[in-house]
Design a protein around this nucleic acid. Structure first.
Lengths: 216, 216
DNA sequence: ACCTGAACACCGTTCAAGT
DNA sequence: ACCTGAACACCGTTCAAGT
C-alpha cells in the first residue's frame, strides 16, 4: 500500500495527473493492473489517497515555535506553507480535502490551519467561514497557477514571460474605451508573479478577518 | 459552430464534464466525430469555447443601473452574479478564464468585474491583485462546491444533509484535545450553506479591500 | 469548404484463474 | 490473502475518402 502511494505520487510529480494511469503504475511497481484494485477501489480513491499521502509531507510551521502571539501571523504562515506545497505539486489542488474519510493528513492540516482562529474573538461560524475562506484563497490561486501552464511552456519551447506577453499584447490592442480596466492592469499582468498575487489575496482576507475579530 | 457549442453546453448541463464526449456530441448533432474537429482543434478548445459561450449568458448586473455610488457594492454584485452562474453550471469553474484568446465573453466579464476598482484609490497593481483575489474567491468556492457532490447525492440515493452528517459524525468522534478546531466548527459544518460560505469569504476580501483603499 | 466513419492508441474496470 | 493479465467498453484523435 505504502509502495503503491509512493509510486503514484512519483508519477504525479514527474508528469502530472494524466501520467497516473493504472497501467503506468502497475508497470512501475512491476505487477499487473489488477493488483492495484486490491488496495484501492477506483481511481478517485487512488487520487484521494495519493493526495493525502503527499499532504502528509507538508511541514507544519507551527511545529518549532508552537504559536506566536499573533494568531493572524500563524494563519498566514500555515496558509503559505500549504500554498508552497501545492505550487510544488499542482496536481494536489484538485483533490485536497475532497474526502476526509480517506484523507487523515489533510484533516490534520485543516485542524492546524484552523487552530489559530480559536485565539481570535469570533463565533464558531465565523471561525469556520474564515478557515474556508483562507483555504479557498490558497487552493483557488494555486489551482489556476497549475492550470495556467500550457504544454508549450512545459516543453520549454516558450518561456513564461513570452507566454504572458502574448496575452498582454492582445489585451493592449483592445479598445480602451470599452476595456479601461484591462488597459489599466495589462502591464501588471504581463510581469506578474503568481506568489505575489497569492500573497496579496491572502492579505486582503486576513486584514478583513483582523477587522472582524476587532484585533489590532 | 453555434450549433456545436449549443449542443456541447447542453450536454455539460445535463450530466457534467464526463458527458461531453466527441461521440455523444456528434450523435446529438447527427453527424460524425470528424466533423467537430473541423470547428475545433481538440477537446481543450471545445471546452474553452463552450465555457465562453455559457459565460456570454451571465447577466451583467451593472447593465440596468450602471454603477452605484459604492464601488465595493458594485464589485460584490458582479462577484455574486458570477458565483450564481457557476453554481448553476459547476463545469464552468474548471475552464473559466483559462484562455482569453478564445474566451471573449470571459474577458468582457473580467473587465466588468474590474471596472469598479477604477473608482477606488488604489495603484494599478493593487487593482490587479484585488480583482484576482475576488475571482479566486468566486471560482475557488464554487469549484469545491461542484467537486463536493459525490455520485450518491446526484443519484438522489442520499441527500446532502445526510452526506454532511456522515462526515460530521466522523469528525465528532475525533479526540477533542488533538482536534479542538474541528470540534469547534463541526456543527457549523454539518448545517452549512455553500452560498453563505461564499458570501462570508467574499466579505472578508471586500472589507480588506475597503481598508486598503481607505474608503469608508 | 465541409463532412464521414473506420482505425489507432490509449483509458478505467472487471473477472476467471492462479498462488 | 494476495496477485495476474486478457478482455470489455469506452475515450480523443487522425486520416483517407467522399461531396
Amino acid at each position: 500500500m505504502e509502495a503503491v502511494l509512493g509510486a503514484a505520487v512519483a508519477l504525479l510529480d514527474e508528469a502530472g495527473a494524466p501520467a497516473l494511469t493504472f497501467r503506468a503504475l502497475a508497470a512501475r511497481l512491476g505487477t499487473g493492473v489488477g493488483t492495484i484494485y486490491w488496495y484501492v477501489s477506483n481511481k478517485d480513491e487512488l487520487l484521494d489517497r495519493a493526495t493525502d499521502h503527499a499532504i502528509g509531507g507538508v511541514p507544519a510551521p507551527a511545529e518549532g515555535q508552537p504559536q506566536s502571539d499573533d494568531p493572524i501571523a500563524d494563519l498566514r504562515a500555515m496558509a503559505i506553507a500549504l500554498f508552497d506545497a501545492i505550487v510544488d505539486r499542482p496536481w494536489l489542488s484538485a483533490y485536497f480535502m475532497r474526502n476526509t474519510d480517506v484523507q487523515g493528513n489533510s484533516l490534520r492540516l485543516y485542524e492546524k490551519l484552523g487552530q489559530p482562529t480559536l485565539r481570535l474573538d469570533l463565533t464558531p461560524r465565523q471561525r469556520f467561514h474564515a478557515v474556508s475562506a483562507i483555504t479557498s484563497v490558497v487552493v483557488g490561486t494555486a489551482a489556476d497557477l497549475g492550470a495556467e501552464i500550457p504544454p508549450e511552456i512545459l516543453d520549454g519551447t516558450m518561456d513564461r514571460d513570452a507566454y504572458l506577453a502574448r496575452f498582454a499584447e492582445q489585451w493592449r490592442s483592445l479598445d480602451s474605451a470599452e476595456f479601461p480596466f484591462v488597459q489599466e492592469i495589462v502591464d501588471e499582468f504581463a510581469g506578474h508573479d503568481d506568489r505575489d498575487q497569492f500573497l496579496a489575496a491572502l492579505e486582503l482576507t486576513l486584514s478583513g478577518l483582523r477587522l472582524q475579530a476587532g484585533t489590532g
